[in-house]
Amino acid sequence: MTDHATAWDRDYQRRGDLWGGAAAPLPDVPAGAAVLEIGCGNGKTLSALARRSSLVTAVDISPHAVSLARRRPGIAAAGLAVADARCLPFHGEAFDAVFLVHITGHLPGPGRRAVASEVCRVLRTGGTAFFRGFSVEDMRAGKGTETEEQTFRRGDGIITHYFTEDEVRELFAPLIPVSVRTRRWYMRVRGRDLPRAEVEAVFRKAA
């Protein structure tokens, strides 16, 4: 495993189900659409996707995360595999929709570009890609050791990159941006309201 993969696998092994609660709102997909989630973790978003389509596939680089996702109610029919998002084990134009929820930002620059290239490759003409990643406006931006511009490593070895809207548009070219926006809210921490922010984007693959 690469260093970032080992860090995530260690985190899931130590802490178990890292992400609980309901998944954040997602765009609708047709019931018969072939859907891929890249970086499914312990299955939080995958559970929501499996309720929308019967043809859902999901991958994660952490074997422990995939094991946890397999135990989650409602996703028994989903195809789950351990795989690197930078080199997906699928033929080109295999999926109608691809979801990347807080996965792309946990890779360094070359990795982010490789993932975006793989999304373009496996997405069918007319298909859509949904991206969500933390914004440079988020309260955690700037925390930790900076490894690249707007990329910071936590003490556990996991890195997080913080995006601008323009950066996300450029990253997923030549896909056509349908919508790119920053979602903002506040989190109360020790009596203070601190800003949270993430960039959400939907792209379409033109003919």
Rank of each mutant, 00 (worst) to 15 (best):
E170S: 08
A97P: 00
P110G: 06
D166P: 00
K143F: 01
P177M: 08
G74V: 00
L100F: 05
F99T: 12
A85W: 02
E93H: 04
C120E: 07
R132A: 15
A114Y: 09
W185P: 02
Y162F: 15
L49Q: 02
F152K: 02
A78G: 09
A77F: 00
H161I: 00
W19C: 13
P27W: 09
T2F: 10
A33Q: 01
G144M: 10
E37W: 05
A34V: 15
R121F: 08
R183Y: 00
E118H: 07
A116H: 04
H102A: 11
M1L: 04
A5N: 07
E137V: 04
A23I: 02
F172M: 09
H102M: 07
V178H: 10
A141P: 14
G126E: 14
G92V: 06
T125D: 11
R181Q: 09
A22V: 02
R181C: 14
R190K: 10
H4G: 01
I61N: 01
M139P: 02
G105P: 05
D60H: 04
N42A: 11
G133E: 12
K44L: 15
S117R: 15
S62Q: 12
E148K: 09
Y186S: 14
A206K: 13
G142R: 01
A76P: 10
A94D: 05
G191I: 00
R204G: 14
A50Q: 09
L80M: 12
L80Q: 11
A23T: 03
A34M: 03
T151F: 02
A173K: 08
V66Y: 11
R184C: 10
L55A: 15
A114G: 05
D96N: 12
M187G: 15
P89Q: 13
R112L: 00
R132G: 12
G39E: 06
T151D: 08
R192G: 00
T125C: 08
T125Y: 08
G144V: 09
K143N: 04
L100P: 01
G109I: 00
D96Y: 06
F172R: 11
H161P: 03
R52S: 09
P30Y: 06
R10M: 03
L175T: 05
P110V: 00
A173T: 11
A77N: 13
A141L: 03
E165K: 14
R190D: 13
K44C: 15
L68D: 02
R51H: 04
S47F: 03
S54E: 14
L100E: 07
G16K: 03
T160C: 15
V202P: 07
S179L: 03
L68C: 09
G142M: 01
R71V: 14
A23M: 04
R112F: 00
V98N: 03
F134Q: 05
G127Y: 01
R121D: 06
F131S: 03
D138E: 06
E167M: 07
P174R: 13
A48K: 00
H64R: 14
L46V: 14
Q13W: 01
A22R: 07
Y162L: 09
A69G: 12
F152P: 06
V59Y: 14
V59N: 01
